[in-house]
Design a protein around this nucleic acid. Sequence first.
DNA 1: GTCTATAGCTTGATAGAC
DNA 2: GTCTATCAAGCTATAGAC
Lengths: 214, 214
Amino acid sequence: MTSLDVVPFSITPKQEQILQGAMRVFLSCGYAGTSMDRVATEAGVSKQTIYSHFTNKEGLFKALLEWMTLSRFQEVYDGGQLRGEPAILLRQVAKIYGSKVADQNYLCLIRLVIAESDRFPELAKLFTTTVIKQGRHLLSQYFETHPELGIADPEAIAQIFFGSLVSYMLVQHILHGKDVMPMDYDRLVTSLINLILAQSNQDHKSGSNYQADS
Amino acid sequence: MTSLDVVPFSITPKQEQILQGAMRVFLSCGYAGTSMDRVATEAGVSKQTIYSHFTNKEGLFKALLEWMTLSRFQEVYDGGQLRGEPAILLRQVAKIYGSKVADQNYLCLIRLVIAESDRFPELAKLFTTTVIKQGRHLLSQYFETHPELGIADPEAIAQIFFGSLVSYMLVQHILHGKDVMPMDYDRLVTSLINLILAQSNQDHKSGSNYQADS
DNA sequence: GTCTATAGCTTGATAGAC
DNA sequence: GTCTATCAAGCTATAGAC
């Protein structure tokens, strides 16, 4: 029923031509706001050509988002395990993340995935699994192999790390936070790294600072 | 030109009836996916009645989002300054935030604001200013009045705090992360609070842990 | 103020020539 | 495989009765 689990992407030149056009329209107009006529014009093909390669509007949309999600992030996460000095590595990860995500096309992809997350939940899950889960897992593993950092819950801290970066991009660049509450990216990253690395400078009385009340 | 700066909201019963219907349709179908016929049916009025109260589809949409944004969050932020023991207060803020935002209608509002942030940037700015900026400011002020916490950059830490919560809600509930990478809210909040409060347990050699490389 | 009826246009999808 | 031509359905917005 769905081709999301295993995706052997082989794209013909014609299909890529169509997807490039579809990308321009879908990313700026959304799913409902995009007309197949407009896609045909933008891609430089006739409408029927689109329908012969992709079943219908829904099929074209799914193919586009799978294509963008997978092709974009396999170039980031193919490095395997993370290595290096904590302070330098964390800053490097934040820098790579910032430069990859701050790209206009990529921000629009995120916005579109969010916008259609109810109509196309499988695409949202694909995005979450491919992009966010893998990032969290890699960083979590790094924390686990560096017990000297004194991190009690690596998975949660990794989620906080990426979550802070995600919400920064979302609020600053998509929700126009840069106009009404600007904040320098380096400044945020610096505070974030100091926060995490400060764990290793104290005696580890883990969990002594709070009392859960549930 | 825009009525976003000062919003003296006085809604007649008829207008509220229309907005209630419009809310149901817009929140689940998006802007382009919503038809005025459907709104009319859902609200139990005729189409022309809508056009006589709100100029056009765009006017109805703007009025709806302003109404929802402002009415929802004045009940959260009217408490003024934050007070109390840090560990307890931070957990309380996270709890209130979690219960307010985890609401289905509110998640849909966020999704809609993000989805239309390019077509309606003013609405995105209103949302950012009303919801996120105010929260960050209140928490930042709290940190400033509690120097014993050893927080070097209150504004950045406040952004990290709310950013972690925002991205949790976004990834878990909107992007279906709860299905592919579940994480307990309390677990995240606990790690987050420990991270922030750990600053006070170490000697404050601020900025000694990293080296900026820009 | 609120309704019904409809104008004028665009939509997703298809048929048939080449 | 790719094109032009076309269909039925749905769209925003308005006109005019009451």
